[in-house]
Amino acid sequence: MLEDLRPGFRALAQTVVPDASRLDAAGWTEVEGIVERALASRPPALRRQLRLLIRALEWLPFLYYGKRFSALDPVRRNRFLLRIQDSPLRLVRRGFWGLRTLILLGYYGRPGAAAEIGYRADSRGWEARR
């Protein structure tokens, strides 16, 4: 689903989770695989809306900055997404919230993310800490 939207999606992901800038090719494959799997079971209409949103977020900055989102510097990317997040339109806020959730799912759903942030839960519980 993300195939032809990859540059825009990755630019959005790096703005939502700056640590994503350090992902290598395998890391991106992992993130995008998680997102694709999560979307696979969702209604086709929702997937269409999401593609539309990613496209809109990629091209809307042209109106403000004369550049696509993926061509903006990090400061302007951040500023633009803040504007979207705080939109007076609930529909826009909802759309961004959904996209942000998917990006967080892809990034923090990786097994490697737990170690990066120091999350250490273990089935053995207290025993694993001794």
Binding site: D19, L81, R100, T101, L104, G109
Partner: peptide
């Protein structure tokens, strides 16, 4: 909660969120 659930629960995005 777990990493993704926690990340989702936090407001905003970017450096402060990370």
């Amino acid at each position: 909660y777990f990493p993704f659930t926690t990340a989702k629960a936090l407001s905003g995005f970017g450096a402060d969120h990370s």
